[in-house]
Amino acid sequence: MEFLAEYGIFLLKALTIVVSIVLVIAGVAAVSGKQKPNHDGFITVNKVNDDLDDYKEILEENLYDKDELKELEKARDKEDKEKVKAEKAKAKADKKAGKGAGEDDVDTVEVIKKRVFVLDFDGDIKASAADFMREEITAILTMARKEDEVVVRLESGGGMVHSYGLASSQLQRIKDKGIPLTVCIDKVAASGGYMMACIADKIVSAPFAIVGSIGVVAQLPNFSRLLKKHDVDFEMFTAGEYKRTVTMFGHNSAKAKDKFREDLEETHVLFKNHVTRFRPGLNIEEVATGDTWYGQDALENKLVDQLGTSDDYLVAACNDADVFEVSYEFKKSLQEKLGFAVQMGVEKAATRFLTIMNAQTHTKG
């Protein structure tokens, strides 16, 4: 027993030393990483059409025998040829009607196939995903044409006004280039999420997705009575009457609270004007109450344009277009992986907690 106790103490000492060394290395790496930040990343592209073809091929191989597969292949080849022929005929007709080209010119027409670029935005309270989306949009705008389309699969219960304002501005870049923008909502696009969604030319919502919450909220605890009870003084020094209105630790005067409410109202007006600009058909005073609607009710209130899931929309798009999922990922050096692992873990946990708490305000039923 004495041997086991000593062995256990030895293991604890060894573990303590190892942990200490790791923390020192992580600290050095963090400092070094801050001096030479590495923000390089890379774009990945996945063609959705190929995924669908693979799914179909796997199922056909398991559902049909060899003779049936040969017949399917023949029928598919015939269908593809007829489709290409029809597309060329349409392109020729369009060119002839638009430019008055002769028959010789029409024969040289090339069919330009539409491309759909798909982005994912899963928003936390800080709209952190905007850091990736800005790079994805920059990449897409180097290639996208006006006959193409960008689809954003958006999920967010909202968060900080300035963060979602920036995320909305990233989507505006697509509109400014004259490229059609569609937003698909499968679960929730509320508050800041809807601030982003309303920019789109078309909003597609799942029937039970939660949409809306055109309102502004701010809440904070106040510990002034607790501090006073324990004889703890709190002093705050500012230059400028409204540098700080309400505080968590001191007494909040009626004037400070009124100013804070006034600021919230001004933000709400900006939010309503933003939504009205992009969806002028809305009765903004009816929907800008902070309430939310399920997709089917949101359609009746003109908050969205059609019902359906992002899967429905993209699978249908594959019939006539090449559909590409585009995503951006940061490269991380060893220093960053070691130095910021703990920091990022704590920060993500805190952000996740706040995001979940925020989402609770948009949960129906």
Rank of each mutant, 00 (worst) to 15 (best):
A206P: 09
N273L: 01
K332Q: 15
A350I: 06
D233S: 10
Q172A: 13
N222F: 02
K56I: 05
R76K: 14
G27M: 04
A321C: 03
A167P: 11
A30L: 02
N62A: 12
L227G: 07
K228V: 08
M143Y: 13
R153Q: 04
K70E: 13
F340D: 01
E103M: 15
L307C: 06
F132W: 05
A139R: 02
H230W: 05
T245H: 11
R115E: 08
S169T: 15
E336N: 06
A256T: 06
D297P: 00
Y294H: 09
G102N: 02
Y7W: 13
I284H: 04
A197F: 11
N46Q: 14
I137C: 00
L15V: 07
H230S: 04
T247W: 00
S310N: 12
K175S: 06
A5W: 07
A288K: 06
D311E: 09
D263A: 15
K187N: 12
D40S: 14
K302G: 03
K187E: 10
T44K: 14
A89I: 02
T138I: 02
L303R: 10
E266S: 12
A206D: 08
I58M: 06
K302R: 07
A130F: 09
A167F: 11
G240K: 02
E103T: 15
I43C: 02
K331T: 09
E347I: 03
G158W: 13
Y242H: 09
K114I: 00
E87F: 00
D305P: 10
T108K: 14
C198Q: 07
E82D: 13
A359E: 08
I210G: 11
P280T: 06
Q35W: 03
K90G: 11
A197Y: 13
A5L: 09
I174G: 01
S168P: 08
F353T: 13
V275K: 04
K74P: 01
A218F: 14
G295P: 09
K88Y: 00
T361H: 12
S20H: 03
R244Y: 03
T182G: 03
H251W: 05
E241Y: 14
N252Y: 07
E136Y: 06
N319P: 05
R277Q: 06
L299A: 14
D176N: 04
Y328D: 01
K126R: 09
E300P: 00
A341E: 01
D320I: 00
D53R: 10
D104Y: 02
G41D: 01
P221N: 15
N301R: 14
Q170A: 07
D50Y: 09
E149W: 01
N38R: 02
L299V: 14
R225G: 08
G192C: 06
L307Y: 12
M248I: 05
Y7F: 10
R244M: 07
Y313Q: 03
L270R: 10
E262T: 11
E136F: 04
